[in-house]
Design a binder for these strands. Structure first.
Lengths: 222, 222
DNA sequence: CTTTTATCAATTGTATACAATAAAGCTCAC
DNA sequence: GTGAGCTTTATTGTATACAATTGATAAAAG
């Protein structure tokens, strides 16, 4: 049996990601407890975690709300992510083994077969993409970096971004991963860093193109 | 009256910083509760925060221990800090107002008077240095960046580093702040970034010089 | 003597009751 | 009418009891 606080975390996170809870909505502990079928104690724990993830903000009077993300906030998150994942890629290139390269290759192959069809399988793409980046991060071998980056990656906007990709964008993403692998095989940290930064920045612009003119992120952003 | 969980956080943090609790020591909720004079509930909250700060680690079986920092870990933290604070300085230079520049100047003046004496006032130096960096970070105007950096800055090693400074190192630190102010006055983001990165990296090497040969950080590291 | 397994102790997880605090509404003076 | 101050209500904070899980110990089988 999984812990109640973990279930509560996933449940609330899911409500935010799905749009069931919108930006600015108040999060009252008792209401969430009832909704999740647990007591307030694990809810409080979950809210603290979500707050660390920046998906929830607390006012000075300790009340919790779903975070609202302006376009600037999103750009900011991507910029930080580009910097940190670029650094992760550099470190990974300096530490990678042939074994890990093989794992990354098969992972990217799975991405390719998910997106190189008339109707791309977005869910598989997201899962495998996540796996790819997680493996790079792990190879970078910095607990602190991992800690910082997960907070950035677990953001709603990051996950919703891919919903706006056109088929070409999916293929490009796969191609950039392939470039990254070339850099890894040559153990070229600087190259890996550049590619990764470009990769993330491209994702930012894909997002901002899709949301041009919007000041705030709306509920059913898809 | 301040919240019990906040008091507990400060108390435990203090125990770690002072060396009353050493690296690897187990943190049992009940024992801490008794020691802090509160119940387990606020202790749990404090531990979660300290875990987010990376001052406490939890095993897979949910037991908490004081984090141990190898020299590599420290180097890692400083490297990340250099990158992120460099970015913060760049953003700050692009957004700074004359008013903030004045505040930073008076802050650095206070640093100067604290360290330009036969026996430098380390506590004042630390407080003002913290204030200086906090103000730069605030000026950078990125909630996410602030969030990430505070986790890195609130580390024991960062605070203990200055204990090893010689008088010359204190003066150099003041001088680098002055350089940074020059970059701010000219609104030169790239320059500000370079200076800040050097500033942090110098601090790293001051630290590693003082700890040469040590594999782990010891309790009474001073 | 080693390994396995069963039991027990120690520790964390959860629910609930109550206390403290902040928001909302209401009264009353002006 | 409007705003200050009180009262009420809603919400979060804390303590405590108990449940669940983990780690340690010891007994038994190989």
């Amino acid at each position: 049996m999984t812990k109640a606080s973990d279930r509560a975390y996933e449940a609330i996170r899911g409500m935010i990601l799905s749009g069931e809870l919108s930006s600015g909505d108040p999060l009252r502990e008792e209401a969430l407890a009832e909704r999740c079928g647990v007591s307030r104690t694990p809810i409080r724990e979950a809210l603290r975690q979500l707050e660390a993830d920046l998906m929830v903000r607390r006012t000075e009077s300790q009340r919790s709300y779903v975070s609202d993300w302006s376009l600037d906030d999103v750009a900011d998150a991507f910029e930080l992510r580009a910097m940190l994942e670029g650094y992760a890629a550099r470190r990974a290139a300096e530490r990678i083994t042939d074994d890990i390269v093989d794992q990354l290759k098969s992972c990217n192959k799975a991405i390719y077969s998910a997106v190189s069809r008339v109707k791309p399988d977005v869910t598989t793409f997201l899962d495998r993409n996540r796996e790819f980046h997680a493996l790079v991060l792990e190879t970078a071998g910095s607990r602190r970096l991992t800690n910082l980056l997960t907070a950035l990656i677990e953001q709603p906007v990051v996950w919703r971004t891919a919903q706006h990709y056109d088929p070409e964008a999916f293929e490009r993403s796969h191609g950039e991963h392939a470039d990254l692998l070339a850099a890894f095989e040559r153990r070229d940290g600087a190259w890996a860093q550049s590619i990764m930064e470009s990769h993330i920045r491209r994702a930012l612009h894909a997002y901002s193109d899709a949301h041009k003119g919007l000041g705030k992120l709306e509920k059913g952003a898809a």
